[in-house]
């Protein structure tokens, strides 16, 4: 009897440990399956439209607004900034593969030399510094416009985040995953409490969007912000809602979170920049 109990305990413990330590590939499969089973009528692609994939009324309004996208001017500005040469005569294109075009889907990527996650925004600023320009503030402003422009050149390309099979990369992924599922703030919510457990339900009058596709369309032009904001600016908004203090832009925790969350949407087409309420 006792040995049976022991075996049972071991089996249960193994099961728990194995979900916590599943491979990224397994995580992604169960993550995506959760949503496709929950919403069998929504196409993979449509998950990238967030709450508008679930709420037809909101979608109608949103589509009407997008006849003249509110971000058009800022996006154009982003293109100009991207194409303006630095004081040393070089430009952004010189820092990136393929001249910076159609690469959004590969970010964030893990740099195996520096052992850290590199987001597109970080790479843009590093390009500036390498060329003797000053850092731009993260989360909004010119940097968000440039990133929005770069995102627009990836329209339709499937998200393709790579997690090298190396201890440091897996640790970064794992840290992002743990951040996502941990409760924080005085109100004690995890990201998954809202976007997984209660997806599609309403908090007050806000429908909670699926986390699948959450990263496919950033930077986002939010009517509330009246400007572009990067994904990490959106993390700030969600953290404040639960009374957790937001982190610095491009802090290690945020980069790891972005790495995990974007990997979960692997295979979905880039469909940004986009507008949101």
């Amino acid at each position: 009897m006792k040995s049976l109990l022991n075996t049972l305990t071991v089996v249960v413990m193994l099961a728990v440990v194995s979900i916590a330590n599943a491979t990224p590939e397994q995580d992604k499969e169960s993550f995506q399956r959760f949503y496709t089973e929950r919403f069998p009528d929504i196409t993979m692609e449509d998950f990238g439209n967030g709450v508008y994939a679930l709420d037809q009324d909101a979608r109608n309004q949103w589509e009407a607004m997008n006849d003249f996208p509110p971000y058009e001017d800022d996006l154009e500005k982003g293109g100009e900034l991207f194409n303006t040469a630095f004081a040393n005569g070089k430009n952004y294109a010189s820092c990136f593969e393929n001249g910076g075009g159609n690469i959004r889907q590969n970010y964030p990527m893990f740099d195996t030399k520096r052992n850290t996650v590199i987001t597109l925004e970080l790479a843009i600023n590093e390009c500036r510094v390498a060329n003797g320009e000053k850092l731009l503030p993260y989360k909004k402003g010119e940097l968000a416009k440039i990133a929005a422009y770069m995102t627009s050149t990836s329209e339709g390309s499937p998200i393709n985040i790579v997690i090298p099979n190396n201890g440091k990369a897996l640790a970064a992924y794992q840290a992002g995953k743990q951040y996502y599922y941990s409760k924080r703030g005085q109100l004690n919510f995890s990201c998954s409490n809202c976007h997984i457990q209660n997806v599609g339900r309403k908090a007050r009058s806000e429908t909670l969007s699926p986390a699948l596709g959450h990263t496919s369309h950033f930077p986002v032009y939010r009517m509330k912000w009246e400007s572009f904001g990067t994904l990490q600016r959106r993390f700030d908004s969600c953290n404040k809602q639960v009374r957790a203090e937001p982190l610095e832009g491009q802090s290690e925790d945020y980069r790891n979170l972005e790495y995990f969350l974007t990997y979960m949407s692997n295979g979905l087409p880039v469909n940004g920049p986009a507008s949101r309420k």
Binding site: Q186, L187, N188, F189, S190, N193, C194, Q197
Partner: peptide, 18 residues
């Protein structure tokens, strides 16, 4: 609420001094 349901989304109004 997390005493009954470990992952309850309902904020712990007393415990967290809300």
């Amino acid at each position: 609420a997390t005493v009954k349901n470990k992952i309850s989304i309902m904020p712990p109004f007393g415990k967290h001094k809300i």
